[in-house]
Design a protein around this nucleic acid. Structure first.
Lengths: 193, 193
DNA sequence: CGCGACGTTGATTTGCCTCAACGATTGTGG
DNA sequence: CCACAATCGTTGAGGCAAATCAACGTCGCG
């Protein structure tokens, strides 16, 4: 367990200073999991009991609309988190699904272990707060984009911002993330300008 | 300063247990401000140095699209916060505007004072974290609504969720918040079913 | 009073969706 | 190892939700 999980060590020490004892304590609570591709990690109605840091692979969280269509809430690849914040913290039945696209390697933290960690390492609260602030900024910008920009503009911004995700997930999921249909995204891409 | 700011005391003790000394310390850092209606609190390019808790009145934060139209990011009435999270925490020029609609009464916290408070009352980190988690859940649901529901459905959900805001702000701002034009909102309202 | 902010309504346009059909690829079981 | 079914992307025709542009009535207010 020494030099593995390097990605996680980098992530967590990037804007924080934890001692190596603290880091080890944190890591000791995080369960290393390997999950095959196209696997459900959370279904609607279940209570989410993991906050998963992505070491490898890519996964999605999404809502299912009444008419049956998926709405991708987020993609999570290396160094991102995968969880249903609402369900995880309020212990309420989840309204969303989480599943893998590629095979994934995760570091999973349960609610109980997270609370224990926060008790023993108060500094962690701060790290989470900063992380959440960044999330909010992301959501604000995405909401703005969905309201004020065309499908084409959103697509162009997306490939600019997440070129790797673009390569690794099927187009129709990206369309869903952007709030357009797969057909329309296909037409956008066919446009030469 | 004893029994005033009751709204704030209720808010902050609602899901947390602060001693009355701690509460007083917090309140001592928060500057009580009275702001007339239609006043700019933050303009694009400025660095936001306040996190304002709303004691009274209602305000908005919004982006300005290239074509000049406003996109309302949020309404803030009693017991809500008003700030540009990104600018406030990263000390970067703001991309949004904040202004009052009605006359407002605010409790303002500067970045420096916030950091000091967080130093002396570590529990505060937790409160902020929980608050941000709720914000994120809100943004997720709003994003979902904008992608998967019609203008009419979003409008109906809005008056259900924020009946008071509905009464207190001009319709065209609500239209902007919902991601539709003022004209279209007017037509929705004219529909009898 | 007169001007600006606000809401409404009509005519027209358009960005995007829906439905449907069709190759190409992948994968899976017999 | 082939056959067949999914899954994925593309393309066409047609339709609709919502935008745009424009005109007009009302109200509050300096």
């Amino acid at each position: 367990m020494d030099k593995s999980f390097l990605i996680f060590r980098e992530y967590i020490t990037h804007s924080n200073d934890f001692s190596s004892e603290e880091l080890d304590l944190i890591l000791s609570k995080m369960e290393h999991k390997r999950v095959p591709k196209k696997t459900h990690l959370l279904s609607i109605g279940e209570i989410c009991d993991f906050e998963a840091f992505v070491l490898k692979g890519i996964g999605i969280s999404y809502f299912i609309h009444e008419n049956g269509s998926k709405v991708i809430l987020s993609f999570a690849s290396e160094s991102w988190w995968l969880s249903d914040i609402e369900s995880f913290h309020r212990h309420t039945p989840s309204k969303m699904c989480i599943e893998t696209i590629e095979e994934m390697e995760l570091l999973c933290l349960s609610h109980k272990d997270k609370e224990e960690l926060l008790q023993s390492i108060p500094k962690l609260e701060r790290m989470y707060r900063l992380m959440l602030q960044n999330h909010i900024v992301n959501y604000q910008q995405r909401l703005l984009a969905n309201i004020a920009y065309s499908g084409k503009e959103r697509y162009q911004a997306f490939i600019e911002k997440y070129p790797d995700v673009m390569q690794r997930v099927p187009q129709h999921l990206i369309a869903s993330y952007l709030g357009i249909t797969a057909e329309f995204l296909s037409r956008i891409r066919a446009d030469k300008n």
